[in-house]
Protein backbone atom coordinates (compact mmCIF):
# COMPACT_ATOMS: atom_id res chain seq x y z
CA UNK A 1 0.00 0.00 0.00
CA UNK A 2 1.33 3.33 -0.99
CA UNK A 3 0.72 6.21 1.34
CA UNK A 4 1.31 9.90 0.98
CA UNK A 5 -0.04 12.86 2.79
CA UNK A 6 0.20 16.18 1.05
CA UNK A 7 -0.57 19.17 3.13
CA UNK A 8 -3.78 20.12 1.32
CA UNK A 9 -5.24 16.66 0.90
CA UNK A 10 -6.97 14.24 3.18
CA UNK A 11 -5.11 11.18 4.52
CA UNK A 12 -6.94 8.67 2.34
CA UNK A 13 -5.80 5.10 1.68
CA UNK A 14 -4.14 4.25 -1.62
CA UNK A 15 -4.79 0.88 -3.16
CA UNK A 16 -2.99 -0.83 -6.02
CA UNK A 17 -4.92 -2.79 -8.55
CA UNK A 18 -4.30 -6.54 -8.04
CA UNK A 19 -2.27 -8.29 -10.71
CA UNK A 20 -5.01 -10.83 -11.28
CA UNK A 21 -7.49 -8.04 -11.99
CA UNK A 22 -5.01 -6.41 -14.36
CA UNK A 23 -4.59 -9.64 -16.28
CA UNK A 24 -8.33 -10.17 -16.53
CA UNK A 25 -8.99 -6.66 -17.76
CA UNK A 26 -6.15 -6.67 -20.28
CA UNK A 27 -7.21 -10.07 -21.58
CA UNK A 28 -10.73 -8.76 -21.98
CA UNK A 29 -9.41 -5.69 -23.77
CA UNK A 30 -7.34 -7.78 -26.19
CA UNK A 31 -10.25 -10.09 -26.88
CA UNK A 32 -12.71 -7.30 -27.53
CA UNK A 33 -10.34 -4.89 -29.22
CA UNK A 34 -11.79 -3.15 -32.26
CA UNK A 35 -10.53 -4.73 -35.48
CA UNK A 36 -8.01 -2.89 -37.55
CA UNK A 37 -9.66 -1.70 -40.71
CA UNK A 38 -7.65 -0.52 -43.64
CA UNK A 39 -10.78 0.70 -45.34
CA UNK A 40 -13.66 1.91 -43.21
CA UNK A 41 -17.24 0.94 -44.06
CA UNK A 42 -18.06 4.59 -44.61
CA UNK A 43 -15.39 4.83 -47.26
CA UNK A 44 -16.73 1.69 -48.95
CA UNK A 45 -20.22 3.10 -49.02
CA UNK A 46 -18.97 6.43 -50.30
CA UNK A 47 -17.03 4.79 -53.10
CA UNK A 48 -19.95 2.61 -54.09
CA UNK A 49 -22.32 5.56 -54.05
CA UNK A 50 -19.97 7.62 -56.21
CA UNK A 51 -19.55 4.77 -58.68
CA UNK A 52 -23.30 4.30 -58.89
CA UNK A 53 -23.93 7.97 -59.51
CA UNK A 54 -21.24 8.04 -62.18
CA UNK A 55 -22.74 5.00 -63.89
CA UNK A 56 -26.23 6.45 -63.92
CA UNK A 57 -24.91 9.76 -65.24
CA UNK A 58 -23.07 7.91 -68.02
CA UNK A 59 -26.18 5.97 -68.97
CA UNK A 60 -28.15 9.20 -69.13
CA UNK A 61 -25.53 11.20 -71.03
CA UNK A 62 -24.58 8.56 -73.61
CA UNK A 63 -27.87 8.38 -75.59
CA UNK A 64 -28.12 12.15 -75.57
CA UNK A 65 -24.61 12.48 -76.94
CA UNK A 66 -25.31 9.92 -79.65
CA UNK A 67 -28.45 11.79 -80.61
CA UNK A 68 -26.44 15.03 -80.70
CA UNK A 69 -23.92 13.46 -83.07
CA UNK A 70 -26.72 12.25 -85.29
CA UNK A 71 -28.30 15.70 -85.36
CA UNK A 72 -24.96 17.33 -86.12
CA UNK A 73 -24.31 14.87 -88.93
CA UNK A 74 -27.68 15.57 -90.53
CA UNK A 75 -27.27 19.32 -90.09
CA UNK A 76 -23.69 19.55 -91.32
CA UNK A 77 -23.98 17.23 -94.26
CA UNK A 78 -26.46 18.32 -96.90
CA UNK A 79 -24.99 15.63 -99.10
CA UNK A 80 -26.23 13.01 -96.67
CA UNK A 81 -29.66 14.52 -96.63
CA UNK A 82 -29.70 14.68 -100.43
CA UNK A 83 -28.64 11.06 -100.66
CA UNK A 84 -31.38 10.02 -98.30
CA UNK A 85 -33.96 11.99 -100.24
CA UNK A 86 -32.75 10.44 -103.47
CA UNK A 87 -32.95 7.00 -101.95
CA UNK A 88 -36.54 7.69 -101.06
CA UNK A 89 -37.40 8.95 -104.53
CA UNK A 90 -35.30 6.57 -106.60
CA UNK A 91 -36.73 3.45 -108.26
CA UNK A 92 -36.18 0.21 -106.40
CA UNK A 93 -33.36 -1.00 -108.68
CA UNK A 94 -31.35 2.13 -108.01
CA UNK A 95 -32.26 2.59 -104.39
CA UNK A 96 -29.60 1.73 -101.86
CA UNK A 97 -30.40 -0.63 -99.04
CA UNK A 98 -32.02 0.74 -95.89
CA UNK A 99 -29.18 0.07 -93.43
CA UNK A 100 -26.76 1.96 -95.62
CA UNK A 101 -29.08 4.94 -95.81
CA UNK A 102 -29.40 4.99 -92.02
CA UNK A 103 -25.69 4.65 -91.58
CA UNK A 104 -24.97 7.53 -93.93
CA UNK A 105 -27.23 9.79 -91.93
CA UNK A 106 -25.10 9.45 -88.81
CA UNK A 107 -21.62 8.85 -90.18
CA UNK A 108 -18.77 11.17 -90.90
CA UNK A 109 -18.01 12.61 -94.34
CA UNK A 110 -15.11 10.18 -94.77
CA UNK A 111 -17.42 7.24 -94.30
CA UNK A 112 -19.95 8.75 -96.66
CA UNK A 113 -17.30 9.12 -99.34
CA UNK A 114 -16.04 5.61 -98.76
CA UNK A 115 -19.58 4.32 -99.13
CA UNK A 116 -19.92 6.14 -102.43
CA UNK A 117 -16.66 4.69 -103.69
CA UNK A 118 -17.69 1.24 -102.60
CA UNK A 119 -20.98 1.62 -104.40
CA UNK A 120 -19.12 2.70 -107.49
CA UNK A 121 -16.87 -0.36 -107.27
CA UNK A 122 -19.88 -2.58 -107.00
CA UNK A 123 -21.63 -0.96 -109.93
CA UNK A 124 -18.53 -0.99 -112.11
CA UNK A 125 -17.96 -4.67 -111.61
CA UNK A 126 -21.63 -5.52 -112.15
CA UNK A 127 -22.11 -6.29 -115.80
CA UNK A 128 -25.89 -6.12 -115.59
CA UNK A 129 -25.81 -2.38 -115.02
CA UNK A 130 -24.83 -0.10 -117.87
CA UNK A 131 -21.68 1.92 -117.51
CA UNK A 132 -23.69 5.11 -117.41
CA UNK A 133 -25.63 3.93 -114.39
CA UNK A 134 -22.47 2.80 -112.64
CA UNK A 135 -20.87 6.15 -113.25
CA UNK A 136 -23.95 8.01 -112.13
CA UNK A 137 -24.08 6.00 -108.94
CA UNK A 138 -20.62 7.24 -108.07
CA UNK A 139 -21.30 10.86 -108.83
CA UNK A 140 -24.12 11.48 -106.46
CA UNK A 141 -26.80 14.07 -107.24
CA UNK A 142 -26.59 13.55 -111.01
CA UNK A 143 -26.69 9.80 -110.98
CA UNK A 144 -30.44 9.32 -111.09
CA UNK A 145 -31.15 11.70 -113.90
CA UNK A 146 -28.46 10.15 -116.03
CA UNK A 147 -29.53 6.64 -115.24
CA UNK A 148 -33.22 7.20 -115.83
CA UNK A 149 -32.75 8.90 -119.16
CA UNK A 150 -30.20 6.39 -120.38
CA UNK A 151 -27.89 9.27 -121.03
CA UNK A 152 -25.27 9.15 -123.70
CA UNK A 153 -21.53 9.38 -123.21
CA UNK A 154 -21.60 13.14 -123.79
CA UNK A 155 -24.31 13.60 -121.20
CA UNK A 156 -22.27 11.60 -118.71
CA UNK A 157 -19.27 13.79 -119.39
CA UNK A 158 -21.37 16.88 -118.90
CA UNK A 159 -22.57 15.60 -115.54
CA UNK A 160 -19.02 14.74 -114.65
CA UNK A 161 -17.84 18.24 -115.53
CA UNK A 162 -20.64 19.77 -113.48
CA UNK A 163 -19.65 17.74 -110.48
CA UNK A 164 -16.03 18.67 -110.97
CA UNK A 165 -16.76 22.38 -111.07
CA UNK A 166 -18.56 22.09 -107.73
CA UNK A 167 -15.51 20.60 -106.09
CA UNK A 168 -13.32 23.11 -104.26
CA UNK A 169 -10.05 23.85 -105.97
CA UNK A 170 -7.04 22.16 -104.46
CA UNK A 171 -8.85 19.06 -103.33
CA UNK A 172 -6.66 16.19 -104.54
CA UNK A 173 -9.38 13.61 -104.49
CA UNK A 174 -11.91 15.76 -106.25
CA UNK A 175 -14.75 15.35 -103.78
CA UNK A 176 -15.96 17.53 -100.98
CA UNK A 177 -16.98 14.57 -98.88
CA UNK A 178 -13.42 13.18 -98.82
CA UNK A 179 -11.62 15.11 -96.08
CA UNK A 180 -8.51 12.96 -95.79
CA UNK A 181 -6.83 11.11 -98.67
CA UNK A 182 -5.11 8.71 -96.32
CA UNK A 183 -8.42 7.75 -94.69
CA UNK A 184 -9.93 6.68 -98.00
CA UNK A 185 -6.70 5.50 -99.57
CA UNK A 186 -7.42 1.74 -99.60
CA UNK A 187 -10.92 2.31 -100.87
CA UNK A 188 -9.70 4.65 -103.58
CA UNK A 189 -7.04 2.17 -104.64
CA UNK A 190 -9.61 -0.58 -104.97
CA UNK A 191 -11.89 1.75 -106.84
CA UNK A 192 -9.12 2.64 -109.23
CA UNK A 193 -8.34 -0.98 -109.86
CA UNK A 194 -11.95 -1.76 -110.55
CA UNK A 195 -12.30 1.18 -112.85
CA UNK A 196 -9.13 0.24 -114.69
CA UNK A 197 -10.44 -3.28 -115.04
CA UNK A 198 -13.72 -1.99 -116.43
CA UNK A 199 -11.76 -0.02 -119.02
CA UNK A 200 -9.86 -3.14 -120.05
CA UNK A 201 -6.47 -1.95 -118.83
CA UNK A 202 -3.90 -4.66 -118.45
CA UNK A 203 -2.75 -5.50 -114.92
CA UNK A 204 0.10 -3.54 -113.47
CA UNK A 205 2.69 -5.08 -111.23
CA UNK A 206 2.60 -4.13 -107.59
CA UNK A 207 5.83 -3.34 -105.85
CA UNK A 208 4.72 -5.11 -102.69
CA UNK A 209 2.61 -8.09 -103.57
CA UNK A 210 2.31 -9.47 -107.09
CA UNK A 211 -1.04 -11.06 -106.30
CA UNK A 212 -2.50 -7.99 -104.63
CA UNK A 213 -3.33 -6.34 -107.93
CA UNK A 214 -4.40 -9.34 -109.83
CA UNK A 215 -7.78 -7.69 -110.18
CA UNK A 216 -6.20 -5.26 -112.63
CA UNK A 217 -6.23 -7.96 -115.23
CA UNK A 218 -8.64 -8.05 -118.09
CA UNK A 219 -12.34 -8.10 -117.11
CA UNK A 220 -12.49 -11.79 -117.63
CA UNK A 221 -9.49 -12.42 -115.48
CA UNK A 222 -10.61 -10.04 -112.77
CA UNK A 223 -13.42 -12.36 -111.83
CA UNK A 224 -11.17 -15.36 -111.70
CA UNK A 225 -11.00 -17.00 -108.32
CA UNK A 226 -7.36 -17.99 -108.76
CA UNK A 227 -5.06 -14.98 -108.68
CA UNK A 228 -2.00 -16.90 -109.87
CA UNK A 229 -2.75 -16.84 -113.61
CA UNK A 230 -3.52 -13.15 -113.45
CA UNK A 231 -0.26 -12.52 -111.66
CA UNK A 232 1.53 -14.44 -114.34
CA UNK A 233 -0.05 -12.18 -116.92
CA UNK A 234 1.32 -9.13 -115.19
CA UNK A 235 3.47 -7.38 -117.60
CA UNK A 236 6.61 -5.91 -116.21
CA UNK A 237 8.15 -7.07 -113.00
CA UNK A 238 8.78 -4.79 -110.03
CA UNK A 239 11.22 -2.08 -110.81
CA UNK A 240 11.26 -2.86 -114.53
CA UNK A 241 11.67 0.01 -116.94
CA UNK A 242 9.83 0.48 -120.18
CA UNK A 243 11.50 -1.25 -123.06
CA UNK A 244 10.24 1.09 -125.76
CA UNK A 245 8.79 4.61 -125.85
CA UNK A 246 5.58 3.13 -127.16
CA UNK A 247 5.16 1.01 -124.03
CA UNK A 248 5.75 4.00 -121.78
CA UNK A 249 3.27 6.07 -123.69
CA UNK A 250 0.74 3.30 -123.50
CA UNK A 251 1.19 3.02 -119.76
CA UNK A 252 0.77 6.76 -119.28
CA UNK A 253 -2.30 6.67 -121.45
CA UNK A 254 -3.76 3.89 -119.38
CA UNK A 255 -2.88 5.60 -116.15
CA UNK A 256 -4.51 8.85 -117.16
CA UNK A 257 -7.59 7.05 -118.33
CA UNK A 258 -7.80 5.10 -115.14
CA UNK A 259 -7.37 8.02 -112.81
CA UNK A 260 -9.36 10.54 -114.80
CA UNK A 261 -12.59 9.97 -112.80
CA UNK A 262 -10.69 10.81 -109.66
CA UNK A 263 -9.14 14.04 -110.85
CA UNK A 264 -10.63 17.29 -109.49
CA UNK A 265 -10.98 19.07 -112.82
CA UNK A 266 -10.08 18.71 -116.42
CA UNK A 267 -6.36 19.45 -116.64
CA UNK A 268 -5.26 22.30 -118.82
CA UNK A 269 -1.97 20.74 -119.87
CA UNK A 270 -0.70 17.19 -120.30
CA UNK A 271 1.88 17.65 -117.57
CA UNK A 272 -0.75 18.89 -115.15
CA UNK A 273 -2.89 15.84 -115.81
CA UNK A 274 0.02 13.59 -114.98
CA UNK A 275 0.79 15.61 -111.85
CA UNK A 276 -2.79 15.34 -110.61
CA UNK A 277 -2.97 11.69 -111.48
CA UNK A 278 0.27 11.04 -109.66
CA UNK A 279 -1.09 12.81 -106.57
CA UNK A 280 -4.19 10.67 -106.74
CA UNK A 281 -2.13 7.51 -106.85
CA UNK A 282 0.19 8.65 -104.08
CA UNK A 283 -2.69 9.57 -101.80
CA UNK A 284 -4.60 6.43 -102.68
CA UNK A 285 -1.68 4.06 -102.32
CA UNK A 286 0.02 5.63 -99.37
CA UNK A 287 -0.84 2.62 -97.24
CA UNK A 288 -1.24 0.05 -99.91
CA UNK A 289 0.62 -1.50 -102.80
CA UNK A 290 1.27 0.99 -105.58
CA UNK A 291 1.49 -0.17 -109.17
CA UNK A 292 5.11 0.60 -109.61
CA UNK A 293 5.21 0.60 -113.36
CA UNK A 294 2.41 3.08 -113.42
CA UNK A 295 4.17 5.24 -110.87
CA UNK A 296 7.31 5.21 -112.92
CA UNK A 297 5.40 6.13 -116.02
CA UNK A 298 3.75 9.05 -114.28
CA UNK A 299 7.01 10.26 -112.83
CA UNK A 300 8.50 10.16 -116.29
CA UNK A 301 5.55 12.07 -117.70
CA UNK A 302 5.76 14.73 -114.98
CA UNK A 303 9.48 15.17 -115.60
CA UNK A 304 9.09 15.28 -119.37
CA UNK A 305 5.51 16.18 -120.36
CA UNK A 306 4.38 14.87 -123.67
CA UNK A 307 1.19 15.67 -125.56
CA UNK A 308 -0.70 12.70 -124.27
CA UNK A 309 -4.40 12.59 -124.80
CA UNK A 310 -6.48 12.70 -121.67
CA UNK A 311 -9.77 11.89 -123.25
CA UNK A 312 -11.94 9.60 -121.28
Amino acid sequence: MKRRKPADTLPLPQRRSPQELDDNILAYARKHAPHRRSFTPGAWMGTLAAAGIAGVALLIALPQQTQQFADDAVRDEPVSAALRMEDALAPPELRTDAPRSEAVSVQSPAVVAARAQEQHLHDASNSSLPATQAKATLEGPHRDSAARAGASQATRHAAQDKVDTEVPAGSPLGTQAQPSPSAAAPMLAESFEAHAASLGIKPLQSNMDPNAHASLAAPGDAESSDPAPAAKKSAPSSGARHSTPTDAKTDIQRALQACRPFLPARPAAPGEAAQQCYQVFKSACEDCALPQTLEQALEHEIADPAPVSTQR
Binding site: Q14, D22, P34
Partner: peptide, 19 residues
Protein backbone atom coordinates in the same frame (compact mmCIF):
# COMPACT_ATOMS: atom_id res chain seq x y z
CA UNK B 1 -7.32 -1.59 -32.92
CA UNK B 2 -4.08 -0.71 -31.15
CA UNK B 3 -4.16 -2.92 -28.03
CA UNK B 4 -0.86 -1.58 -26.76
CA UNK B 5 -2.46 1.87 -26.51
CA UNK B 6 -5.05 0.47 -24.14
CA UNK B 7 -2.38 -1.23 -22.06
CA UNK B 8 -0.59 2.08 -21.70
CA UNK B 9 -3.84 3.77 -20.77
CA UNK B 10 -4.71 1.10 -18.24
CA UNK B 11 -1.29 1.26 -16.59
CA UNK B 12 -1.65 5.02 -16.20
CA UNK B 13 -5.10 5.03 -14.55
CA UNK B 14 -5.63 1.63 -12.96
CA UNK B 15 -4.34 2.34 -9.41
CA UNK B 16 -5.94 5.74 -9.22
CA UNK B 17 -9.32 4.38 -10.24
CA UNK B 18 -8.98 1.39 -7.94
CA UNK B 19 -8.30 3.73 -5.00
Amino acid sequence: GDVSAFECLYARHKDELFS
